[in-house]
Design a protein around this nucleic acid. Structure first.
Lengths: 211, 211
DNA sequence: AAAAAAGTGTTGCAATTGCAACAAAAATGA
DNA sequence: TCATTTTTGTTGCAATTGCAACACTTTTTT
């Protein structure tokens, strides 16, 4: 599987037409400039045409986590981020050319002229985008430095859309430890602490986040 | 962004036609059965039509890491995995219906009848697949339990295609620590150990893996 | 060219985490 | 239903990791 380019197999003319049709925007950023933060348009996909950038998250405690390095032909965007408490910034690490495309303009599913195969590809593209969202969640959990933070982040993500901040564990606690890549007994210990500190309540496999 | 289904906006008839045209295979798996391991066809995308599964990696030391939980409409496959020393298995956690599609059949770029917009969507789909590969690499590093293993995994991935097992650090050591989500001074200490143990050699920003 | 900022290497000490081992509870399956 | 396997909870102890502080080097800025 060789890496391709966004405009592979598309002529320069066609690319220009596409940029017009999709109302895409090409932008330039100098080194160390912030390309985007999570305040930006939620529907844009960014593509690094030239240069490089870094996606970073600043934690409340001052820790900085580098989420990913972006290079030529890498994609990024809010589309790939869940609407959690993320505080992500994308910062140019060299002079950058970035193309922003509205995600919705890309998907032709609604277009009655597209073939069913086109629709399938559109659908798979969307499913891939979803996969990336959940992988980002996973990375957010794994980049937490302590067991307590990993647990809390996992619980927060799991109750994200729940009004009563309750969710049912999708697997055993043993599995959870393997999922968080931590020792099970240490995890149990920390869960006990969280209960004693009145931060969570556990009934069987149902976990509720208090506060 | 609402989650869609693989055959959204596609009729049952069209779906059947598609499955034929793409030579896709629908398969059923019972609970606890291994759906796939990394020995399988490298070009297949799997889609969970019904049921659930878990992607796990067994480490040399016996540790087990749960890489991800797969549910209805989730995608998986070798396409999304780099050809490293991964030892991944996908195991059904409930009775599963899975659809396997050959990745190459999906991409119409080579088809002269497809519009340039179709091609763009194909290209973006491929770039997303690449993004998933690199996110998988990232998750592999982060799921390692010790600083030493995180470093070694990162070094291995970075020298994957290098004959002389040498690569140039793409950023500072301070950044590397933030990327691996570990303390910088502890990392420096471990890098010193790796040097003393004759496992790596560092010249400025060039790191060579010995053995 | 000088000053300021950022990165690197080091260390003692404290805190967290992992490991091992075991008992009890729950789930599985024959 | 009973036996076996898996999961859960617990704990002491050892090992690893994080923290804080500092000196020194390198890079960046003025």
């Amino acid at each position: 599987m060789k890496k391709i380019t966004i405009f592979d197999d598309i002529t320069k003319d066609e690319a220009e037409k596409l940029i017009n049709e999709l109302d895409a925007k090409k932008m330039h950023f100098n080194k160390d400039v912030t390309i985007a933060t999570n305040i930006n348009n939620i529907n844009l996909i960014g593509i690094i045409l030239e240069g490089s950038a870094t996606v970073v998250r600043y934690e409340y405690n001052g820790d900085r986590n580098i989420i990913e390095k972006l290079n030529k032909d890498d994609l990024f965007g809010e589309v790939f981020t869940s609407n959690s408490s993320n505080d992500l910034s994308i910062i140019a690490t060299s002079p950058c050319d970035v193309l922003f495309i509205d995600y919705n303009m890309l998907i032709t599913s609604s277009n009655k002229y597209s073939t069913y195969k086109n629709k399938l590809v559109d659908n798979i593209l969307q499913l891939l985008a979803f996969k990336i969202v959940s992988m980002n969640d996973r990375i957010e959990v794994l980049t937490k430095r302590t067991i307590r933070e990993k647990l809390l982040t996992f619980f927060n993500i799991s109750t994200r859309d729940k009004i009563n901040k309750t969710f049912t564990m999708p697997f055993s606690f043993t599995d959870l430890a393997d999922y968080l890549a931590i020792d099970r007994s240490a995890m149990t210990r920390e869960i006990k602490n969280l209960k004693e500190d009145g931060i969570i309540v556990i009934n069987d496999k149902r976990i509720t986040l208090l506060n």
